[in-house]
């Protein structure tokens, strides 16, 4: 694969951000983009633990509802009024995406030539206990530690 996987992922993540009505591309949009790259081993690993795109979307909504409940707000997020997304809008990378890309570059083995494949991005995504993705995986009942170990192992074994 000679195409820049990073640009593919950022492009797909941007579509997710736009669909979400978000002004920035956040880590959860990257997670959805990763799950959507069906041919990649990263997407297959996600699917093995039940994280298909649909499952991620419903877990994201559940996380949203649970976090609103902390503030005493009970909302079924699925029944919120929709806003028409702006097709021409170009969401920029948010802080959570910058962090995960940084962590992906730091993961062993150090990438040569700045190559950033799906598995490396997944490792970067899972390298934190904080933020919406971690909470969403918890809401989905996924063992994050085990998933992270498998992704790290796959990356170390040469999966890009």
């Amino acid at each position: 694969m000679s195409t820049d996987v990073r640009s593919i992922l950022v492009r797909a993540a941007r579509v997710e951000a736009r669909r979400d009505g978000s002004r920035t591309i956040e880590a959860e949009h990257v997670l959805l983009a990763l799950a959507g790259e069906h041919d990649s081993e990263a997407a297959q690993l996600l699917a093995e633990v039940g994280l298909t795109e649909d499952a991620i979307r419903s877990a994201l909504n559940r996380e949203w509802e649970q976090s609103l409940a902390v503030a005493g707000i009970e909302v079924r997020t699925g029944s919120l009024p929709e806003a028409t997304p702006e097709r021409g809008r170009d969401p920029q990378m948010g802080e959570s995406t910058k962090l995960l890309l940084h962590r992906a570059m730091e993961a062993a083995p150090k990438p040569g030539g700045g190559r950033l494949g799906p598995m490396r991005i997944l490792v970067g995504l899972l390298a934190t206990e904080r933020g919406r993705v971690a909470r969403t995986l918890d809401a989905a009942g996924v063992d994050r530690t085990a998933l992270r170990a498998r992704a790290t192992e796959a990356l170390a074994a040469g999966t890009r």
Binding site: S67, L68, V70, I73, L80, A83, R135
Partner: peptide, 23 residues
């Protein structure tokens, strides 16, 4: 952690409501 996640969730809710209700 829960309290801060609630802040993020409320911002998302406010943004969604603003976009849909202004429209």
């Amino acid at each position: 952690a829960a309290g801060l996640a609630a802040v993020v969730a409320l911002r998302r809710l406010a943004d969604r409501l603003e976009d849909s209700q202004v429209e």
